[in-house]
């Protein structure tokens, strides 16, 4: 474990807590894309298949349970909770996220570390996570006034993967044979997708104006 990875995990944890806080306290999911949340639930479900078979550390297991629990409960809240679901603007959240799942699955069947079910699912979860934010970014472009919590959620979600890139650089130089091209390239693509969001997020913070993404 290194500081970059710990900071990345904490930032990721903060992003899901910010979103859970928003949905649970103000009982609203306005501006939140259900499709991105469903994709993330699928990402964790396919990435943490080894949660009960390989014990790495208490930290690792606890964090996996938190990410699984939070992502599925957020999907439940937006789909089922009688008050929250009313604030979900489904006619704005129209990204065809199923069109993201299949190409990621096909790519995982072609490019993986080892042709086993677990490894193909692992690669699938990395490719899917790289594009999972797209429905949310599209929704933000359509949402005129993005509330602070949603903006913070997306920012933290992007920042966590950027911190992971620093972690991979650190581990590459400190651990022999630490090479994971699939993870690195997927993580880089994922972070680059946030580039324009980061720009507008920083601009709005610097000029102290409401965050708005150009359509």
């Amino acid at each position: 474990m290194n500081i970059f990875r710990l900071a990345g995990d904490m930032t990721h944890l903060a992003s899901v807590l910010v979103l859970l806080l928003k949905i649970h306290t103000i009982k609203s999911c306005a501006g939140v894309s259900l499709k991105t949340q469903e994709l993330y639930a699928l990402v964790f479900a396919t990435r943490y298949l080894d949660i009960f078979t390989d014990f790495i550390s208490l930290y690792n297991t606890v964090m996996k349970l938190i990410f699984l629990g939070s992502s599925f409960s957020i999907v439940w809240y937006i789909r089922r909770h009688k008050i929250v679901r009313r604030s979900y603007d489904k006619d704005q959240d129209t990204f065809r996220h199923y069109f993201l799942v299949l190409p990621c699955l096909l790519l995982a069947l072609v490019i993986h570390e080892k042709f086993t079910f677990r490894e193909v699912m692992w690669a699938f979860s990395l490719y899917l996570e790289a594009v999972a934010i797209l429905p949310q970014l599209v929704l933000l472009q359509r949402t005129r006034n993005i509330d602070n919590l949603t903006g913070q959620y997306v920012f933290l979600l992007g920042a966590y993967r950027a911190l992971y890139i620093l972690n991979w650089i650190y581990r590459y130089f400190t651990e022999p044979h630490f090479v994971h091209w699939i993870t690195w390239i997927a993580g880089l693509v994922q972070t680059l997708l946030y580039a324009d969001f980061f720009y507008y997020y920083f601009e709005s913070w610097k000029n102290n104006v409401k965050l708005q993404l150009p359509a």
């Binding site: 990875r5 964090m63 080892k114 677990r118 692992w122 993870t183």
Partner: peptide, 10 residues
């Protein structure tokens, strides 16, 4: 055979 690559990151 090579044991399953251990993914120790989240």
């Amino acid at each position: 055979d090579l044991e399953q690559p251990m993914h120790d990151e989240l």
